[in-house]
Amino acid sequence: MEGFVALYIFMLAAFTGYEVISKVPVILHTPLMSGSNFVHGIVLVGAMVALGHADTTTEMVIGFFAVLLAAGNAVGGYVVTERMLEMFKSSKGDKS
């Protein structure tokens, strides 16, 4: 990838993250932190690639732990975020 294209992606992503969070009410800070914790669980994809082209035993062992940890991040992040958000309901009775 062209270095500058990567720089553009980084810059735009940084602004996006800032904008998305800046209008969040305090009541959602904890679930949102948990939600963003889940989103960087995408590291699982990279861990799978790392393990998928590992050749030596050392690489395979490290790659195995990469996938193991990343899967923990993604699955755990999802489960706790979903559990927290599930409980938010309005007094007007819509339990969507």
Binding site: A6, A13, A14, T16, Y18, H40, I42, V45
Partner: peptide
């Protein structure tokens, strides 16, 4: 990974 990672980094 680049986009998700940096979005979380700045958020």
């Amino acid at each position: 990974m680049m986009i998700a990672g940096i979005v979380v980094g700045s958020a």
